[in-house]
Design a protein around this nucleic acid. Sequence first.
DNA 1: GGATAATCGAGACGGTACGTCGCGTCTTCAT
DNA 2: ATGAAGACGCGACGTACCGTCTCGATTATCC
Lengths: 214, 214, 214, 214
Amino acid sequence: MKSSPDIKSRKPFPDRPRGRPRSVEARRAILKAAHELLAEGGLSSATIEGIAARAAVGKPTIYRTWPNAHAVAMAALMESDEAGESVAEKQPAPKPNERSSSALTALRTQLHEVARVFSAPLGRSVTLIIAAAEADTELSKAFRNHFILARRNEGRALLAGAMSNGEIRRDLDIDVALDLIYAPVFYRLLMGHAPLTSRFIDDVLNVALQGLAR
Amino acid sequence: MKSSPDIKSRKPFPDRPRGRPRSVEARRAILKAAHELLAEGGLSSATIEGIAARAAVGKPTIYRTWPNAHAVAMAALMESDEAGESVAEKQPAPKPNERSSSALTALRTQLHEVARVFSAPLGRSVTLIIAAAEADTELSKAFRNHFILARRNEGRALLAGAMSNGEIRRDLDIDVALDLIYAPVFYRLLMGHAPLTSRFIDDVLNVALQGLAR
Amino acid sequence: MKSSPDIKSRKPFPDRPRGRPRSVEARRAILKAAHELLAEGGLSSATIEGIAARAAVGKPTIYRTWPNAHAVAMAALMESDEAGESVAEKQPAPKPNERSSSALTALRTQLHEVARVFSAPLGRSVTLIIAAAEADTELSKAFRNHFILARRNEGRALLAGAMSNGEIRRDLDIDVALDLIYAPVFYRLLMGHAPLTSRFIDDVLNVALQGLAR
Amino acid sequence: MKSSPDIKSRKPFPDRPRGRPRSVEARRAILKAAHELLAEGGLSSATIEGIAARAAVGKPTIYRTWPNAHAVAMAALMESDEAGESVAEKQPAPKPNERSSSALTALRTQLHEVARVFSAPLGRSVTLIIAAAEADTELSKAFRNHFILARRNEGRALLAGAMSNGEIRRDLDIDVALDLIYAPVFYRLLMGHAPLTSRFIDDVLNVALQGLAR
DNA sequence: GGATAATCGAGACGGTACGTCGCGTCTTCAT
DNA sequence: ATGAAGACGCGACGTACCGTCTCGATTATCC
């Protein structure tokens, strides 16, 4: 009921903003447009002007929420990822604790999956955005967390499982181990000095597991 | 026939370019200006307009040689690297075959050096350019060769030395091993999910040598 | 001296392209190219660059003879006019002294002819060049003489004839009379406020004559 | 009330342009700058780049309103003419119907004025622009109307007055008569074959009148 | 219910940089 | 020593986006 203003005005946090609320439709249209442009023409096609035009939205509506086109692209990629039609959709569940040696198998599967996803056009955009993002913005960190750390954490769990069932050494620094495993994929992706084949991924894992020394 | 064509056809440079040759001074000024701008403001400061202004050169003179600002930046970085005031200057010679265990030591030294160089502002520009370079242009390949493969080849020699003196296994695929070692450096540099410390580099090498498994 | 110029200069026909008498050919090619470009795209298409390309001639070769594209255009129009395929080709001879009243008839005929010629694309270029020519260059004057004064002189002769046979007043200032007659044609051509019809020319002459006649 | 759409649909300007209206200040600054440049260096000095710089305005702001520098020059000359500091400022009112013979006197005065105005630098720019204007653009026509037809219409009124008070013949085609009178001024201005003196104008009128008068 | 306020779309604003064209001058090679 | 070829510094062109700023209109909450 409207007639009890004292209660409403005294409410501690909800603090509804005055004025007209931002349009969810507009937001959705913007992110959809950005996602499409990223998919069609890559990072450089996702301009504010182009997004606004395709979303039938004013430019200030975009700037009200995001500081620049980069940020919109990040938001679009993260949102679409959550929505399911994904850059890096969840694989059918790793199940690390099935039986002996299954942790490493799962890790191998996940690594192939990561390579597949980030080789795709949208995946390339993701890595480029992360690489080019200079400042340690909140959004930058969130974006990195979403696409890089999330997979690292899956890997971390798998490695922990592999530790506990004796598949790998117990004295490992897991962060170092994770970088050792994931880095070659992105290295080849970004530097492009050699193709990122399925065979290469297997080889990397094998060599990493056995070690170079003898 | 106006003259004896056999003589003409025997000239050593059959299609020497006609007309006024391109000015070496202009080229030098352009690359110098580009290099300075890269060092001062990073990749985004190296615009054609800015380079032309600083080099006291017309824009068409730049476009006559390079197709875009990216290419000029590549040329500038490569040229300056050769000139000595380098993004990645040669270390005082590795000498891999001195004595036992020295190959791996040299590799470790080189890896630290690579990390140092590519952490610097100009080094970051180099990796960003490589990552963002879309097509497999000739210039792109040359640039990658210059900055990535050159160091890989040094590493390749060191690894071969380590193989021959028994420091590492002889059944290794050296390309895989090289990626395993160099990738984590660039991975941290480009993804920025964790700092690229000296300690980390040592750890990576150690773990890689020993292997994850036990 | 490498050769005996007296021999070369004494040869009757300049046929052989042995030495270097290319200059005449080049000149012809330049003027031809300029004329074609003028005819195809008007004054603004006749650029030095375009002329040089079409004539397969170096730009300095053009600048050696003419100071700018305007001058080349003038030369091309004058030359072609002399050559016969003319902007303002000679009509089959006026013959002002045939019989009584024929002087004015001839004047009328010539005026129609002038209007026809200067209405054509190349004629428009001629008037535009004259109008836009700022300085009183020698070439400018020559050009004006060729295209404007030549016709004025024809008209002057006709008017003098008309004077002597009593068709017009004897106390006229012929220069004023000539301007009175020719001006309306160019006025309509250049200002374009009304069409330049055959009827209009007759009307102008009639009205003008009402005062000139006696 | 805002919510009654019938009232809204009855609004007098149904398709008022949306978005931010164009800045009148910017427009004024642009036209002022163009006018100054025209006065200082003639037609060729009025470049888009120069105008934008002097007006402290972005180039796209100019292109949003005018298609090229020519059009800006036209607008500037017309606007300034209306503003008073004029290329062809209004003389103190002709008053054609005062007394006998005054219509022709007024015409003579106006013709001198026209010659004076179009001999001045800005006046030359005006005629050059009209002569060079290729297409029958709306702006071209408006420009011609403003500078040529306006004066013709003054002259038309004067001639009509001269007709009605018997100074000139009543069976004249006024348009032909007007061209006969104004054309010599512009003819000499544009062709430059002879100087445009005050004496010449009087002579032209006298000779022309010998026929017009009755 | 009326005022207030933040939103919406649209699009113009001052700018920066783009990549191109033509200018008039120069430099080099082959005749 | 001339001629073609073409690079040079320069200046202007017209376009694409940037991020900001009005506009009128819309949609909420608050008084």
